[in-house]
Amino acid sequence: MKKLLIMLFASLLLVACSDEGDTTKDTGEENNEKATDTDTSKKEEQKKVYQIGETAVITSDLYEFDYEVTVDDFKLTREVDGTPLDDIISGAEEDGRFAVVEVTIKNISDRSYVPNEMFSANFARMDAKGGETSYDQFFTIGDEELAPGEEIQGHLVYTTRVDYADTFVLKYEFMSDEETHFELPNPEQ
C-alpha cells in the first residue's frame, strides 16, 4: 500500500511539473501562442504614428538611409492638376474622389537618390492591412535626383470614395520594422 501511495504521489508530481512548462506532449516544445500574440500586438503598437503638420524621420529599411516626411495637407477632390477623376477612372461613381496628400520630403542622408525609386507611400483606411500606391504622373518631382540637404514638395494622389473611412492612413516603409503612419482624417465627414 505504501508503494502504491508513493507511485501515485510521484505520478501526480510529474503531471503537475509537466503542466507548469506548458509543453506539448508530442514535441516537448513550449507553447508560445500567447507570446506570439503579444509580440504581434507590441509590433503594431510600435508603429510610429504622425498627424498632419508633423515631421517624421524615417529610415529606409531596404537602402538604410534616413529621410524626413511631413504631410502638409490632405483633401478629397474630383480634379487634380486639371485632370478630372473620370479621366483616371472611367465612369467614376458620384462618391468617388482623388485623395490628395501634400507632402514635403527632405533628404537628410549623405547621398543623393531619386525618391520615387527608393520608397513609396501606401494609402488606405485606418484599419486596413495593405493599401494603394500613388499615381506617379502627379508626383513627377519625385523622379528627380534629391541631393543631401535638399527637399521637395508635391502631392501624392490616390483614388478613394468619400464614405470609405472616417480616417485614412499614409504608410511609409510598409511591412518593415520602420513602418511609419500618418493619420489623415476624412475632410468630408
Rank of each mutant, 00 (worst) to 15 (best):
F9L: 00
L14H: 08
D19A: 03
E20P: 00
G21P: 04
G21W: 13
K25G: 00
E30Y: 10
N32P: 07
A35N: 01
D37R: 04
D39S: 09
T40M: 11
E44G: 06
E44W: 01
E45I: 13
E45Q: 14
Q46K: 11
Y50R: 14
Y50T: 07
G53L: 06
T59Y: 02
E68A: 05
V69W: 07
D72N: 03
K75Y: 00
L76V: 10
G82Q: 01
L85Q: 03
L85R: 02
S90F: 14
E93G: 13
D95M: 02
R97I: 00
F98S: 00
V100P: 01
V103T: 14
T104I: 00
N107F: 03
S112K: 06
Y113I: 09
N116C: 09
N116R: 05
N116W: 12
E117H: 02
E117Q: 12
E117A: 14
S120N: 13
F123R: 15
A124S: 07
R125Q: 03
R125P: 08
A128E: 03
A128C: 09
T133V: 03
T140V: 04
G142H: 05
L146R: 03
A147L: 12
I152C: 10
I152L: 11
H155T: 11
L156Q: 05
Y158S: 00
V162R: 15
V162Y: 00
D163L: 14
F168S: 13
L170Q: 12
E173G: 08
M175D: 11
E179V: 02
L184E: 07
L184F: 04
N186Q: 12
N186E: 15
E188M: 01
E188K: 15
E188A: 11
E188T: 15
